[in-house]
Structure formats: C-alpha cells, structure tokens
C-alpha cells in the first residue's frame, strides 16, 4: 500500500513552510508549482494541511492546525491556499514589500508597480513569455540593509481570461472567477532565484495607446511608497530606501492595451545594461 499523504517543504522570503496533502494528484501539482522554491526538510515555521476531496467530504485547508476554509472546489481551495501563504510570508518579511510585478534580465530587476487587479500578473506573465525571467507577480521585495531585490517567486496567479491570453492553446473551462496557479515553466519561462539590482521601474497604464517613454526616476518614488504593503510602512525609512533604490534606476511610463504587445515592446525598447551599483 502506498503513502496516503505527501509533505512538501518550501522557503519563501525566509519563511519555511511545510504543506501536507492527502491527495497525491494535488500533491504532484503543488510540487510542480513550487519546485523552484523547494527547501530541504527541517523545522518549518508554518504548517498547512490540505485534506478531503473524496466523494464524502469537502476539501479542507488548515493552517497550524486551525481550519481556514472548506470548499467543494479544489481550485478554490488552492487559490485560498496561495492567498493565505502570500499574506503570511509578506507579513513576516523584514524588508520593504511593494505591490508590483517583477521580472529580470541577467542581474537586473524590472519592477511594474500597481494596485491589486491592475493587471500586474498578466503583464508579468507576458514578460516571462517574452524571455524575461520570473521574479514575482505580487511583490517587489527589497532588503533594507543591502537594497537588493529579494526574489518572491510564488506561482503566477492568472484569471482564466489572462491565462487564455498568455497561453492561447489553453482550452477554455474552469471556474471563471477562480484564479489559475501556474509555474513560469507552464508558460515557457523560468524563475530567477538570486538577489538582483533594481534597474528599471515601469509605471503601466492599461487602456492606453502602446507606448514606452522615459520619465524622471523621481516620479516613481510616490507610486512605490503608495503601493507598500500594510505592515511595511515605516514610512520615513521606506522613503529613504526607495529614494536610494531609484537613484540609479531608469523610469518609464508604459501605455498598453494588450499585455503581449506591451511585453514585446519592453523587451525591444529597454536597453540592457549592467547595474551601476
């Protein structure tokens, strides 16, 4: 008789998380999604359990033994699992975390700040498809001491509509209001796992004519400060850190309607240069 549950250890932004799943198909899916952030087994900081899913019972998600959500839908439960993981990890991160999609080219990080629902994940996924490596579709994480960008490569979370845009061969289906979790490999890309230097910040405006124009770096500080996650608001210190981080950055304003066109423009127009720091 084979094992009835599977255990998966990951490390995200320094938080060690163990996930125990009693459905081997789901365990294999999570292992695929989290393969780039797998950690060797050790004492975890947090433990998640996902159980159920047979004909008799709903799926149940528990965090450190406490029930978080119960659902008949596996997709919804997985979405909630990643949302809970996201909150937990960003709350524990001692640096500055800013709502942003982040991709990389070599040692250079390119950040696209934006509020939730602004299209960051779609644009990030499109950039990964265009050849950039994946850093995060959720947060630009900056180490307060080194000023470096710390990768936060949680799985990409795309709506069904965005998923079909990024992967046109994807058959329609699934629950339209449930986000799909994808690894960069699922869309033909790869993950960046090392610390980076922030070299470019792009302020993106959806529903505008396709255009990418340089703007003064000073113009992005207010936007970055505005997009800081709650709990990361030691504001004066954060202002100083962000001002320092953007001093040697290039800043851009992007207008776009289609994320794939925007990613191709970014790929074509951004001059590749080694960071000056």
């Amino acid at each position: 008789m084979g094992p009835t549950s599977s255990s998966l250890d990951i490390d995200l932004l320094g938080t060690r998380i163990r996930t125990i799943v009693d459905d081997l198909e789901l365990a294999a899916r999570l292992e695929h999604l989290l393969i780039d952030i797998r950690a060797s087994s050790g004492t975890p900081d947090e433990i998640f359990e996902i159980t159920g899913g047979d004909t008799q019972s709903d799926w149940v998600l528990r965090h450190n033994g406490k029930g978080i959500v119960q659902s008949a839908s596996r997709d919804r439960l997985v979405e909630r699992f990643f949302a809970t993981l996201n909150e937990l990890v960003l709350d524990a991160f001692p640096g500055v975390a800013i709502h942003a999609g982040v991709v990389a080219r070599g040692p250079c990080a390119i950040a696209i700040p934006g509020r939730s629902g602004a299209g960051k994940s779609t644009l990030t996924a499109a950039c990964v498809r265009a050849g950039f490596s994946y850093v995060s579709d959720e947060a630009l994480c900056i180490d307060r001491i080194t000023g470096e960008v710390v990768p936060y490569p949680r799985p990409l979370m795309l709506s069904e509509t965005s998923h079909r845009l990024i992967s046109p061969s994807q058959p329609s289906g699934g629950e339209s209001d449930t986000k799909v979790a994808l690894s960069p490999a699922d869309i033909g890309g790869h993950t960046n796992s090392v610390a980076l230097t922030l070299t470019d910040v792009i302020l993106a405006e959806r529903n505008s004519a396709l255009d990418l124009e340089p703007i003064p770096p000073s113009e992005v500080v207010a936007e970055l400060l505005e997009r800081c996650f709650e709990g990361h608001q030691q504001r004066a210190g954060t202002f100083e850190l962000l001002s320092s981080a953007v001093t040697d950055c290039r800043a851009w304003r992007l207008g776009y309607r289609n994320a794939l066109d925007a990613a191709a423009l970014i790929r074509r127009a951004l001059p590749f240069s080694q960071p000056s720091r």
Binding site: P216, P217, S218, V221, A222, F239, E240, S243, S244, T247
Partner: peptide
C-alpha cells in the same frame, strides 16, 4: 520634511 535629491531634482516626503 525629508528631502532626497534624485537625478538633480528634490523629492520630499
């Protein structure tokens, strides 16, 4: 007022 010079111009928090 916390002022930082970025690219020749001041940004003030």
């Amino acid at each position: 007022a916390l002022a930082r010079e970025i690219d020749g111009n001041f940004t003030i928090y």
